[in-house]
């Protein structure tokens, strides 16, 4: 079957060649930096700027081993995955609930609340991290307690243990503010989606005796799967690259995510470019894979969310 699109299918081969030419031209500018990064990760520090060519004369695999071992990439990689997954689950759950309510349900203060969320998205204040740090520190004082397990008699439990649920140098202290930061955009995006969704299916479910929450969970959320794909990839990119907040809040190296490990090679004085490039190549791979997986959702997602008028 012939498909129709905005551009008419022309027989004119010059137009087709022209389109291909411009697409390839733009593609080259996008591929070149990636190729350069990968090739640089195989060069030595001396070679890297002397020879900007794409084919390295040496193959310094040691840059990769150096990045993996010196940067302690193993634990950092686990941490990054852990934070990305938890923050995304948090954002998706909380924002989809709220967005569904903003779209379908009535409650007092609905509009004011929605615009409140929206407004936060627009405020770019670099100083906010200091305020957040002060807050998390306060929470740390409020939520920490000591457990004394010495009565059990085990030697490693002899000293009382201090536990802080959310505070400085805790994983939750990293995760919760990240969820909060990414919430606004997700709510805005998902509300647009729910608004466009035909309500018939949900009404049918209501008649079948499903509760409001049931309708959300069993009908609305599965239908929104594709819009959620968009949110997943948007947020994954931000969280995967977040390192300022990680640096501020953690002091334990075993809790740091990948970008912090990467920064080790970018010194205030000496930058070990090839190792840095090797590290960045490793870092970029999971996000590209995630994008490939989410692509089909994204394509359907925006579509269904925004266009079916």
């Amino acid at each position: 079957m012939e498909s129709y699109s905005i551009l008419k299918k022309r027989k004119n081969p010059f137009v087709t060649i022209g389109i291909h030419f411009s697409l390839i031209l733009v593609s080259i500018t996008c591929i070149f930096p990636v190729a350069w990064m990968i090739s640089s990760s195989l060069k030595t520090q001396e070679m890297i700027f002397e020879d900007m060519g794409l084919i390295p004369k040496t193959f310094e695999i040691s840059n990769y081993t150096k990045a993996l071992i010196e940067g302690k990439f193993g634990i950092a990689f686990f941490n990054s995955c852990f934070y990305t997954v938890t923050v995304i689950i948090g954002v998706v759950l909380v924002s989809s609930l709220a967005a569904y309510a903003f779209s379908r349900l009535e409650f007092p203060g609905k509009n004011i609340l929605f615009y409140g969320f929206l407004a936060y998205m627009m405020l770019p204040i670099p100083g906010i991290f200091l305020a957040l740090y002060v807050l998390v520190n306060k929470l740390g004082d409020l939520t920490s307690f000591t457990i004394d397990l010495s009565f059990i008699g085990l030697s490693f439990l002899k000293d009382p243990i201090n536990i802080t649920i959310i505070g400085i140098n805790t994983r939750l202290g990293f995760i919760m503010p990240q969820i909060a930061m990414n919430l606004s955009f997700a709510i805005y995006m998902l509300k647009t989606f729910f608004d466009k969704m035909p309500p018939e299916l949900e009404e049918a479910a209501r008649i079948d005796g499903c509760s409001k929450f049931g309708v959300y969970w069993h009908v609305a959320l599965p239908l929104a799967k594709s819009a959620l794909g968009v949110i997943v990839i948007f947020n994954a990119l931000t969280i995967w690259n977040e390192f300022l907040w990680a640096n501020l809040i953690f002091s334990d190296i075993s809790r740091m995510p990948l970008p912090v490990a990467l920064m080790k090679f970018q010194g205030s004085v000496v930058t070990q470019y090839p190792v840095l490039m090797a590290g960045m190549t490793i870092t970029i791979i999971p996000i590209v894979i995630l994008y490939l997986c989410m692509q089909k959702y994204i394509i359907k997602g925006i579509t269904a969310g925004a266009v079916k008028g």
Partner: peptide, 14 residues
């Protein structure tokens, strides 16, 4: 209660 989790997180951390 649908918006409550969002409001709590939002007002605390934002």
């Amino acid at each position: 209660s649908f918006v409550l989790p969002a409001i709590i997180i939002f007002s605390l951390f934002n």
